[in-house]
Design a binder for these strands. Structure first.
Length: 284
DNA sequence: CACTTGACCTGTCCGC
DNA sequence: TGCGGACAGGTCAAGT
């Protein structure tokens, strides 16, 4: 999905809408996407919306938290009671009105608002669990640091990096245990900005390259958040709007197009089964 | 152990 | 227009 900037965008929007609302009903047509008991949520009030890596956490007054992962094609869409149609502008990729055939969970609130969880590929999920247990769920407890965590200093980053000598740097950036929240789009873009060949093993990086990578990972994520995320395919924010980050992407999904720095053609290869885009001249 | 591969789903796009 | 194949932002379990 939705990587860190996309989830952060949704988190900020939902915070302004959901906090204080009471959950009145929970509907789903796809059992595998709902883990836990929705009954535990009914009647509770939304207290806070948070993000950890690419996951969204919605805390409720009953000591129960919704843990939501959008995976590749998940969308969370907020609809006010006041609008019969969708809250935002329902433009592609939100081609169909909601709910539609990819709507698999609907939360109803006491003010008439609804939250739709759409997921074309049904990879995403909502976990319902006790708030106290959230930190101990395997997925969360094993995550690496947040890129913007002030405790993650350059020194710390380099120390962690050096422990993973043989891994290709691109694949390491996608490893959530190393760094939480970076996905394929931002990994490709950060490596371009840092002039690093994605196939390079960590042990082959210079200290200077590590330093630059640390800076550029945070930089592309920041640009991503400011752009409201990347709408390469199906991503839309909680109001159904596209993000603008693809306007800033210089390598991702640009195979055969000229590199903006040197004019060489952008190449595409597969690394760990994921599309990997880079400039063969600029990235060493 | 560290790393790689295939599976989970359903759609779009591109070439013939 | 139809058909087949490649590709799609993420993880997880199983295999090497």
């Amino acid at each position: 999905m939705p990587e860190l900037p996309e989830v952060e965008t949704i988190k900020r929007q939902l915070s302004t809408k959901l906090v204080g609302l009471r959950l009145t009903d929970f509907w789903s047509d796809t059992p595998k996407m709902v883990i836990g008991n929705p009954e535990d949520l009914l009647g509770s009030e939304i207290k806070e919306v948070r993000r950890r890596a690419k996951l969204l956490e919605i805390d409720t007054s009953k000591g129960v938290t919704l843990l939501i992962h959008l995976k590749m094609t998940g969308q969370l869409l907020y609809q006010d009671k006041t609008t019969d149609t969708y809250h935002g502008s329902a433009l592609p990729p939100l081609k169909k009105p909601i709910p539609n055939s990819s709507t698999h969970v609907i939360l109803h609130f006491d003010n008439g608002a609804k939250l739709y969880f759409n997921d074309l590929r049904k990879f995403g999920y909502i976990k319902i669990l006790r708030t106290n247990d959230v930190e101990h769920t395997r997925i969360l407890s094993e995550f690496g640091p947040e890129p913007f965590d002030p405790d993650l200093t350059l020194e710390n980053f380099i120390t962690r990096l050096k422990k993973r000598k043989t891994m290709k740097i691109k694949q390491l950036l996608l490893d959530q245990k190393f760094l939480a929240g970076v996905g394929n789009i931002y990994a490709n873009e950060a490596l371009f900005k840092a002039n690093i060949d994605p196939r390079k093993k960590v042990a082959e990086l210079s200290e200077e390259q590590m330093k630059e990578l640390f800076k550029q990972v945070k930089n592309v994520l920041e640009v991503g958040i400011k752009a409201g995320g990347a709408s390469d395919q199906t991503y839309v924010n909680a109001f159904g709007e596209k993000g603008k980050f693809m306007d800033y992407a210089v390598v991702y999904r640009r195979k055969g197009k000229p590199c903006e720095t040197c004019g060489a053609k952008i190449e595409r290869i597969a690394l760990g089964g994921r599309g990997t885009f880079f400039c063969p001249k600029c990235q060493l």
